[in-house]
Design a protein around this nucleic acid. Structure first.
Length: 765
DNA sequence: TGACTGTGGGTTTTT
DNA sequence: CCCACAGTCA
């Protein structure tokens, strides 16, 4: 079989070990995807049916790419393999089994916005202070609970969490959580975490032996990016694989060094537990990097060696070097944008790089703007990923809300959105009453509209009756009529179409186009959705309107098609995981930005940031450029930053400091020299030592250091700063919650520093 | 009911 | 700086 010849010995061994549990530790660029796809092809070639193979990925895009690559080896049956994200595959299973856990199979999926909005409503109804109870903060706390299998009941019994909440002065989080769960249930809705959580419940409670059905069905299970799975995902996987007499054909691929989703509950423990849980485990390490040149691989190895806790492996390459890593030092973020854009232009000409081989990466999405400006200036085509996905746009969500309602009238978020947009005489007050009544009688807002106890004007009642009739009509037709025709009619009858047509501004025309694009997408989906075949019933309704609505919620903007245009890619480092480009720009390499100041406060946060940096630089095949700015607009004002410590962790021999106005004009006030020069001048023999020195406090801090309240920070005061030591306040300005002090520090080569008091810890002496 | 204004608050990463 | 929301006015 020829495809096996395209593999190196370790890769081949992994591919052909088809029986029993297998762990593949795969360094960046080591052919991980190739191994995964060829293994599946290999299984298919040896007679395994495509629907017996399950492959779980983290993005739709990588699932799709994988299927396409398998297809190249074995032909169209590859498309029948069960390959998709955890969320989409689980949604599909839940669709089939929903009735067993008290959900309609046309359940709605709440995206992050829907969830936040439900929480906001609950907080309001409970009369809690919306500042203390920040809806999106609570959303992430609930999300983390679900990922760790903590139900509201378990939450209440968990003294640690309850104590935390009391300390944070929001003791009612657990009540919000409880209400939220109840509300989702009665709305027939699942949030992202529910897609995992409810599937876990289904398998745990195992009604009608449903678990056995899937254990038998999925004879070969694969997990990509295993390092990014969370506790809940691991628990589900375990239930599918571990049972009496199981062949335990589970094949997981991951790299602990690329674990970047700990904030979302991912844990490297899963890799360690995996070895314990599966004693027959065979482990393979893919250590040869086929992607990047030697400078890049060495730099990556050096960086990652600063992390303590990691699996032992050595990534190497035999690619020869042509270019050193370039470092761009800028005075401002604007200069960074300009010089990156200029360098891209130069690289394109000199090396004939197509735009599609170039990517600018950054830590936070908000950094994209400066690059956009300067790319536009040079007429370079680009595309920004990570923004709002098509399906999150207002006009699309409005339309989709109506569709959701037609399929699942219990969906309260959809109801709230649709009921009075376009306006039809049902006021906010009425909606509040509906919600309260639904809550009190444990029914839904949809049913509450008919409740005789509802105390609203006759006019409002009439409007609601009309609305209900309209939706009911759609509901009936949803069972029989084609989804496209129904949707087109909904667009008209809802009044949305007229509203959009009335707006002839360019944006308005765009909105109309977007809504029409939804219609096209529906017809494409329902006509052609190639349901994975199989002798079972699991996929029967897969091209329904409900399935479409569930699918789109799980799409990100990276999944959207029209990728044919040749453009430069702008994205966060997180979204770049799994991708590769000839030329990579990693930007904003400054302390408190990359690594992020948020991460620096978390235990192990720095390690995760470092893995993120590792992921960033290993995306590059040939050209790697790093940049930082000494001054950057953040929080509405210019802030001074120092270069990222990560720059110090790469040996000077791999670097080249790029000249430019910025460095020539350099104020010379940087605390540290640029790494290239530092290493060359031999100031620091060993970057590791240097980093360790740096992480230690540079000034003696008394053990009883205690941050003083903001009111005490006034001009003239002498203060102690954790990092810069003793100093004098020259002035304080800015709004009360975002005060900035200008401080002159004693032992500092900067004449003065602007310190954002919100972040700094200062003690008045 | 909708459009406008001011204010206040938040900005890590995503399925 | 930018966004979302609340409150105000027509």
């Amino acid at each position: 079989m020829s495809y096996l010849d395209e593999l190196n010995p370790v890769q081949r061994a992994a591919v052909t070990t088809t029986e029993g549990p297998v762990l593949v530790i795969a360094g960046p660029g080591s052919g991980k995807t190739r191994v995964l796809t060829y293994r599946i092809a290999h299984l298919l070639e040896s007679g395994v049916a495509p629907w017996e193979i399950l492959t779980l990925t983290f993005t739709n895009k990588s699932a799709r790419e994988m299927k396409d690559r398998i297809e190249k080896v074995v032909g169209p049956r590859a498309q029948q393999v069960w390959a998709g994200t955890f969320h989409s595959i689980f949604a599909r299973i839940l669709r089939t089994e929903a009735s067993k856990i008290g959900y309609p199979s046309s359940f709605s999926i709440y995206d992050t916005d829907d969830t936040t909005s439900v929480l906001r409503a609950i907080i309001k109804e409970m009369n809690l202070d919306p500042n203390a109870y920040n809806a999106s903060a609570i959303r992430s706390r609930i999300s983390l609970c679900k990922s760790n299998l903590i139900s509201p009941k378990a939450y209440r019994e968990n003294t640690e969490m309850m104590t935390q909440d009391r300390a944070a002065r929001r003791p009612y989080v657990v009540d919000i959580y409880e209400k939220y769960v109840a509300r989702c249930q009665r709305s027939g809705a699942m949030d992202f975490d529910d897609l995992l959580f409810q599937l876990y419940r289904l398998f745990r409670d195992n009604p009608d032996k449903v678990l056995e059905k899937y254990q038998k069905k999925f004879r070969y299970i694969h997990v990509d990016e295993f390092q990014d799975t969370n506790f809940l995902q691991y628990a589900i996987l375990r239930r599918l694989v571990k049972y009496e007499g199981s062949p335990e054909n589970v094949f997981v691929v991951g790299d602990d060094a690329q674990s970047i989703y700990a904030f979302r509950g991912a844990t490297i423990d899963n890799i360690l537990d995996f070895e314990k849980d599966y004693p027959n485990l065979k482990t393979f390490k893919l250590e040869q990097n086929y992607r990047s040149t030697h400078h890049i691989v060495s730099a990556a190895n050096e960086v990652i060696s600063f992390n303590r806790r990691q699996l032992n492996k050595t990534i190497w390459t035999d690619k020869e070097d042509r270019h050193k890593i370039k470092l761009i030092k800028c005075v401002t973020d604007d200069e960074e944008g300009r010089r990156v854009a200029d360098l891209i232009l130069e690289q394109k000409h000199r090396y004939h790089l197509p735009n599609s081989e170039i990517a600018i990466l950054y830590r936070t999405n908000s950094q994209s703007r400066k690059f956009e400006e300067h790319l536009r200036r040079l007429n370079l085509p680009y595309r920004v990923f990570g923004g709002m996905s098509f399906y999150q746009r207002k006009e699309v969500k409005d339309f989709v809300a109506y569709l959701r309602l037609a399929v699942n009238p219990s969906d309260e978020e959809a109801l709230r959105r649709a009921i009075n947009f376009p306006a039809r005489g049902i006021s906010d007050a009425t909606v509040d009453k509906l919600s309260a009544l639904a809550d009190a009688s444990n029914s839904t807002m949809w049913e509450a509209m008919l409740d005789p106890r509802l105390d609203v004007t006759d006019r409002a009642k009439k409007s609601m009756a009309t609305f209900r009739n309209m939706v009911q009509d759609w509901q009936k037709r949803a069972a029989t009529e084609s989804a496209y025709r129904l949707a087109a009619d909904i667009l008209k009858k809802s009044g949305l179409l007229d509203l959009l047509k009335g707006d002839t501004s360019p944006e308005g025309i765009g909105r109309l186009e977007n809504v029409n694009a939804v219609l096209d997408a529906i017809s494409e989906f329902t006509d052609s959705a190639a349901a994975p075949a199989g002798p079972e019933t699991v996929t029967a309704t897969d091209n329904s309107l409900a399935a479409y609505l569930q699918t789109i919620t799980l799409l990100t903007d990276a999944d959207e098609k029209n990728d044919s245009n040749d453009h430069i890619t702008l994205m966060s480092v997180h979204s770049a995981k799994g991708l590769e480009f000839k030329s990579i720009f990693v930007t904003g390499l400054e302390e408190n930005l990359f690594p992020s100041y948020m991460a620096l406060e978390e235990p192990n946060g720095l390690d995760e940031e470092r893995r993120l940096f590792y992921v960033a630089i290993t995306r590059a095949k040939e050209f790697l450029t790093l940049s930082f700015a000494q001054n950057r607009y953040r929080f509405g004002q210019i802030r001074v930053s120092e270069p990222s410590r990560f720059l110090d962790e790469i040996g000077g021999q791999h670097y080249e400091l790029l000249g430019g106005i910025g460095s020539a004009r350099s104020t010379g006030t940087m605390q540290r020299e640029a790494p290239a020069r530092a290493s060359v001048s031999g100031n620091f023999t060993n970057p590791r030592q240097r980093a360790l020195q740096k992480s230690a406090a540079p000034v003696a801090i008394p053990a009883d250091f205690k941050a003083s309240p903001l009111e005490d920070i006034v001009p003239g005061a002498r203060v102690l700063h954790l990092k810069f030591g003793e100093g004098k306040i020259l002035s304080v300005e800015g709004p009360k919650d975002n005060k900035v002090a200008t401080i002159q520090f004693k032992n500092d080569d900067m004449p003065e520093r602007r310190i954002v008091l919100k972040f700094a810890k200062l003690q008045v002496l």
